[in-house]
Every structure is written in structure tokens, then in C-alpha cells.
Write a protein that binds this DNA or RNA. Sequence first.
RNA 1: GAGGGUGUAACUCAGUCGGUAGAGUAACGGCCUUUUAAGCCGUGAGUCGUGGGUUCGAUUCCCACCACCCUCACCA
Length: 508
Amino acid sequence: MEETSELRQQRLRKLEEIRQLGINPYPYAYEVSHTSKGILDSFEHFESSQEKVSIAGRLMTVRRHGKTSFAHVEDDAGRLQIYIRLDDVGQEAFDLFQLFDIGDIIGVRGHVFRTRTGEVTVQVETVTLLSKSLRPLPEKWHGLRDKEIRYRQRYLDLIMNPDVKETFRMRTEIIRALRSFLDARGFLEVETPVLQPIYGGASARPFITHHNALDVDFYLRIADELYLKRLIVGGFEKVYEFAKDFRNEGMDRTHQPEFTQMELYQAYIDYNDLMELVEEMISTVAQRVLGKTDIAYQGHRIDLSPPWERLSLFESIQKYADADLYGKNVDELRAFCDERNLKVDERLGPGKLIDEIYSELVEPYLMQPTFIKDHPVDMSPLAKRHRDKSDLTERFEPVIGGGEIGNAFSELNDPLDQRERFEQQRKLLEDGDEEAQVLDEDFLRAMEYGMPPMAGLGIGIDRLVMLFTNSPSIRDVILFPQMRPEREGDTHGMSDDDPVDNQKKQTA
RNA sequence: GAGGGUGUAACUCAGUCGGUAGAGUAACGGCCUUUUAAGCCGUGAGUCGUGGGUUCGAUUCCCACCACCCUCACCA
């Protein structure tokens, strides 16, 4: 279908014509002296010096006027107008320029001036084709709106929508700021396996893959927690990792099967110390990336400056749902759910019920940064028991904008308690909880050698970036979000009969 | 997994109470040496998501399927 497209055929003809002129439409390099932004920022200098500049980028607009043309060239830093006159560039170059299309990558060299209407412009003396484009870009006025094409063909989205570029620049800056915050505090960035023989560290269903040489199945990690803790056993005292994790679950506005989490572990601190670190880290990153600590997210103003409110899970339910559920048994909790019209699964244990109640009645209303802490022990098999209440754990979730952006605890380092917790998880698994955690014998062995007291944290990087960039969907902060693969004959405009492939098939 | 919505030219969208479709942009030809949604004149462009059914006739009605979006359910 694409190969018969009229517009593409026209461009292929132009490509041939350019070749006939003895010009390579795909040359090797171009000497770029300046960026569009550099020229715009220092216009007076360039105007008075008449210094020659060369810029390269994508031709985004063209206004042809017979023997002159105005156009805009867009590079990584922005757009700059260029002005081409027959008298300036000569007949040959001007004819070549007539063969250019919007979307072509070109380089131009000339001096800088300001037009009658006041726009900073390069008056072109030489023009070079750097890459001929064969497909038309979306329309200049409405741009590219179709979300499916934007996600599937992110390159096109990036070309057409400047704010997308900005979002992903900011994503990188956020990660960079987190790194430098942790590095400055003596944390060591490490790498741990993505392929794991036993998955662990979170409650989720894994992806399974197969290693041929060993003839064993591996799991793509759902977390790196158990490996980072092994490193603390090994003697590192502060470690972190930016990890791509994989969870084989549903996808929606806040979930992708492949997502990024930053986990950190520090020996000899507890979860109270870690809360301080988290609020300082997030507000520092905001200050560095956004230049402020109050942000706007989907119509809400959020103040990230410390200290953040600290509420135990049961206090938060007390405060937002006006109910004291601490110490209630399963039947009482279920009765409460009925009373508040919460539909819950029959099989849920007390911990999951509490979590359900909290998620429905509390979390969505927590716009300002809040540490929700002290979760029931059966919800948190890797967390240390609360020092005062043995049925709770020293765990907290930083909640911002109505959703949690992470999870942390004073880490359980009692190997015998840990074994019991794994055994309880095994029962849950046998009772049909597909997300229950699996016993990891080597992890227990490591713990038996002696694991220092410590606290650990996981931060959902994608969600943090959503908050910082005011993005409503996780797909807006992942460059290439997972989509159902394209199939021939499906979505309109998406079928892509590659003529090169077809040629190969024919000649094979 | 359930419910709702969308799918028409390269893009953004109209439209057809059933008679095989239009606008703007982009493209092509012509005029135009400071334009910027340049302008003026002219032209071409589409298996109306896919498959089936009803019908003399389907892009339109019906059914199934596919993709995407939204809401809900599970999760970070």
C-alpha cells in the first residue's frame, strides 16, 4: 500500500532526479558550526560580524516565491528561518532546492540577518542535501494527534510535537539528578541480573524465558531487591540501581509491563532515616530539574518541600474514612467493606483487605506528599516487624498526587523470621494468589551469614517523571511504550509493505 | 477480563436517513526576489480498519474480528 502511495512515488522520482544531477542524496557528514538556538541567542553578534554560520536540521516549512524561498530548519535545539535567493546561491543550487521536500534533512551556510518582519534568518549561500525524506510529514497546523501513531512511531511524534522532546529531556535530567544526589552521599551504583532463576522482591507475576545452553527457564526480574540486599551482606553499605523491571500484568494509564524502578539500600539506618532521605531527595531533584519544589499535576498544586506528612496506614484510614480498623479480624473487615460498598474478593486475607480499603478510600485523596507507614505484616514479607507492634511492619510508601511512587522499609534481617514469612507466602501461593512471593534459599543463606540492619527503597521512576512533567499516562514518559505488535492489514495507515523486503523475497 | 467510544486521502477532520465520497493542510503544474497557516489560478490523490451477511446496490444497516482510546478489575 505504501509503495503505491502517490506522495512517496513523487519523492522517489525526485530522489532519482537528484542522483541524475550527480548529487549523493545521502552523504556522509556535514560541518555544523552553530545551533539554531546559539544563533538566536547571540543574534547581535552574528549580525554585526557577518560571520558565516552553518546549521543542519530537518526542513519543516517552505514558502516558495518564484526566485526566492523562505523555510524553517529545525535542529535539536529549535527552529531557525532560512532565506534562499536565486541570486545568492546560483541556478544549480536553486534548482536543487526546488527538489527538496518538507522533512528532508539539509545543511545551509550563510550569514545572519533580520527580516523586514523581524525574524532572525540565515541568508543562504550554499545549501546541501543531507538526507532525502521519502514520506510526507503530518500537517504543519494540526500536527500529529493520533495517539496510536504517536506511540508506535515515536520518532514522528518527536519530530512533530516539541513538548514530547521536552518531556524526555526532563526524564533524563530527573534520573541524572537522582544519580548525583545519591553519588554525593556515597552510594555505589551497581548492576544485578535481569535474568533470575528465582524471581523475588515484589508481589507480581513474572515473564518467563528460556536459556538454551543451560536448558533452564529464567524469569525476567520483577525487582532487584534480593540481589541488592545480598550486596549489603557482602559489605557494601550504600548501593542503588536503576532497574528495568518486568511484570506480567495488565496495562493501563499507570502500568507498563516494562518499567523503571530505582532501588536503594543503606546499612545501619531504619525507615525513619529513610523517610528523611526520600523527602530530601525528591525535593532536591525538583529544585534541580524544575527550579522549584511546588509542582502542578493534572490540576492540583503539590508542594514537595520537606517535611512530608507521616501517617500510619491505620491513622490514614481513621482520618479519611473515619474508621478504626486496627486489630479487626477478617470478618469485621469484610463487614466494613460491605458497609462502604467496596467489592472485594472472597479470598482476600486481612492485609489485602486493609490495602483494598486504603486504596479506595484514602490514597486517591492524598495529593500532598505523604508517607503512609506501618503496614500489616502479611502484606510485607520482606519488611522488618514494627518495633512496638509485632503485627505491623516498619514500612512506608511515599504517596504524591493520589498515588504511591515508591515503597520502602526497615529491611527484615532476621533469617528465621524471613523463612517463616516465605512459608506464609507459599501458603498464599497454594491458595491461588499468583502474586505471592517465592522462597529463595540462597537469599536466606546470605541472610544467615549476617545481614546488617538497613533500610531499602524502591521508587517508580516512570511515575515520578509523570508527576514532574504533568503527564497523565505512563506512555507519555516511556519513549517506546509496549503496544500490541502491528499486523499486516490491521490498523489503517500502519501496514508497511517494505519494497526492499519484497525485492529480497523475489530475488531469493 | 467487562463496559463505552473511535477507525474515511500522507495529516487534521466533515459526510453519506443505502446509490462506490469531500474540506483544509501536504503534493503536482503555472505566476511571484523579505515570506511566515505567504498569496492567486489550475490538477491529481482514497480496496471509507479487516472479513462475512442483508440488499439490485454497503463506506453507510447487521454480525464477527483487529487496533487504539476511556472507565472498571489486578498491580508500582
